Simulated scan of single mutants.
Amino acid sequence: MKNFFLLFLAVSITGNAQDLSSGNSVKKEINHTLNQWHKAAATANFDAYFNLMTKDAVFIGTDASENWQNEEFRKFSKPYFDKGKAWDFKVLERNIYLGENGKYSWFDELLDTQMGICRGSGVLENNNGEWKIKHYVLSISIPNENVEEVTRLKKSFDTRLRLKLGN
C-alpha cells in the first residue's frame, strides 16, 4: 500500500523547488511545521512532536530494520522523550515542493545531528488547512570516498538482514 501511495504521488502531482525568500506562504507554513517538529524532539515534547504527524504516519530510521508505523514509533520514542533526551536535528538546508492539488507536499533537508550530517526527506499532507508529516525518511550521509569502507563495515549486518527477509 505504501509503495502504491508513493507511486501515485509521483505520477499524479508535480512540484516546484523551495524558495522561502519568494514569499510563498504555503511553503513558509510547511517550513514552520517542520521546524516545530524538530524543535519538539529537541525539547522532548512528545505530544507536540506526534501531533505534527498524521495518525498513519511512517518514520523510516537510519537502521535498515527501522520502518516504524506511527504507533510503533510512539512506543519506541516514548522512553527518550520521557528522559528529556530525544534528538536534536538542526536544519542546514531544506527544499520544499508542492503538489498541484494542494493536498500534498514533499521535501528534503540536510541536517546537523548527533550522528553527523544526515539527510531527511518526507511527505506532508494538508488536513483541513493544517500540514502534517505523513512519511519521513532519515539517512546518514556517507561521503562517496567512504562508501567502500562503510560497505565493508555493514556487510555482516546486511547478510543477516537478507537472510531474515528471505533473500
Rank of each mutant, 00 (worst) to 15 (best):
V26A: 07
N67H: 14
V91L: 05
S22Q: 07
R74I: 06
R160C: 02
K155C: 03
V137L: 08
E29N: 14
E93I: 05
N146K: 14
S77F: 09
K154Y: 13
R160E: 08
L138I: 08
S77N: 09
N35L: 12
L153H: 11
D112Q: 11
W131R: 05
L138F: 10
I140N: 13
N128F: 12
V91F: 03
D108K: 06
V137Y: 04
L153C: 05
G116F: 07
S65Q: 10
F107P: 00
F157Q: 15
Q114I: 11
F76V: 06
I30C: 06
N31A: 14
E125W: 12
Y136I: 07
T33D: 02
M53Y: 07
H135T: 03
D56R: 09
E125I: 15
L92K: 13
G99L: 10
T43G: 01
R119P: 00
T113L: 04
L92Q: 09
N167D: 04
Q114T: 11
D82V: 02
L161E: 06
L161S: 02
G166Q: 04
R152D: 06
E66V: 09
A41C: 03
F157C: 09
S141N: 08
H32F: 10
R94N: 04
K85S: 03
F76G: 00
T151C: 07
S77I: 04
